[in-house]
Simulated scan of single mutants.
Amino acid sequence: MRADAQRNRERIVTAALELFAERGPGVSMEEIARAAGLGVGTLYRHFPDRRALVEEIATSALECLASRIRLLTARDVSRWDVLAQVVDYCTEQPLALVKSVAGDDCVLSERAALQDEVDGLLRSLVEDVQHEGTMRRDISPVEAVEILSTAVCRPGASPGDAMTRVTLDGLSR
């Protein structure tokens, strides 16, 4: 891809992320093009439809999250600290957008596989935290991941916000 085309693609994705974070997933393609400082035709040359744009953002977010979880879990610190860092990282990602498209009938196999990988990494981390004794054991790892997902995969999630703090406090021992 030419350098200018790559820059335009990055501008589109950046503008889309900002608008989705600010106003939710209902932002129009025209608004995204305008925020990127590009014409609608340029946007559609890169992304033939809204679904293609959202899929790219969702797939990229899940790839980054899986990498971050692997990186953090490799550190020699308490598992609770790792979980708290993962949660903080999650609140800074477009996971509300990822979750909004997760239930679609047309889920791409690549994104579905990434979601399964991320869920597995999170369940494994929760098991480690429970084994460490810093997380309640009366909640299964699957339930804990669902609870954490509710806290971080929502518009407006941020590190240390009330919902995130209360969620972590409720899971701690």
Rank of each mutant, 00 (worst) to 15 (best):
L72Q: 03
A5S: 14
Q85M: 14
R23W: 13
G41S: 14
S78H: 09
V86N: 08
D105S: 10
N8R: 15
W80Q: 12
R165I: 12
V101F: 08
I32E: 04
Q130D: 11
D49Q: 02
E117M: 09
A74D: 10
L122Q: 10
Q93K: 06
Y44G: 09
G170A: 04
A162Y: 11
T167D: 08
D4M: 14
A157E: 08
I57M: 00
G37L: 06
D88R: 01
A66E: 06
L125V: 03
P48S: 14
M1F: 12
A33P: 01
T150I: 15
R45E: 09
R111V: 04
L43S: 07
R23Q: 15
E143M: 03
D116E: 15
F47G: 13
A3S: 11
L121Y: 10
C106T: 14
A33D: 05
A33S: 04
A3K: 14
M1E: 12
E56I: 01
A61V: 13
S78M: 00
G170W: 01
D4I: 14
V152Y: 08
S109P: 15
D169L: 09
E132T: 06
L122N: 05
P141H: 06
Y44E: 13
R136N: 07
I147Y: 01
G170H: 04
E146I: 01
I147F: 02
V27I: 08
A96F: 15
W80I: 08
L43P: 02
A58H: 11
E31N: 08
T150A: 15
D169V: 04
G156V: 03
A15F: 04
A21S: 15
V145F: 06
E132G: 10
L171D: 07
E117F: 05
V118E: 06
A52M: 00
T73I: 02
R136C: 05
E22I: 02
D128V: 02
R70I: 08
R137H: 08
R154L: 02
Q6N: 13
P48W: 12
S100N: 06
A16M: 05
T14A: 03
V145G: 03
R9S: 11
G39R: 08
S78Y: 01
R45W: 09
A157D: 08
C64A: 15
Q93L: 07
F47I: 04
T150D: 12
H131D: 15
R136Q: 10
L17A: 06
C90S: 11
D138A: 04
F20Q: 02
S158E: 10
V126Q: 02
A84D: 12
R123V: 01
T73Y: 03
S67V: 15
D119C: 05
T14M: 01
M1C: 14
L171Y: 00
V152E: 01
R111M: 12
V142I: 11
L19Q: 10
T164D: 05
T14P: 00
A112E: 11
M135C: 12
R50Y: 09
I32G: 09
G156Q: 09
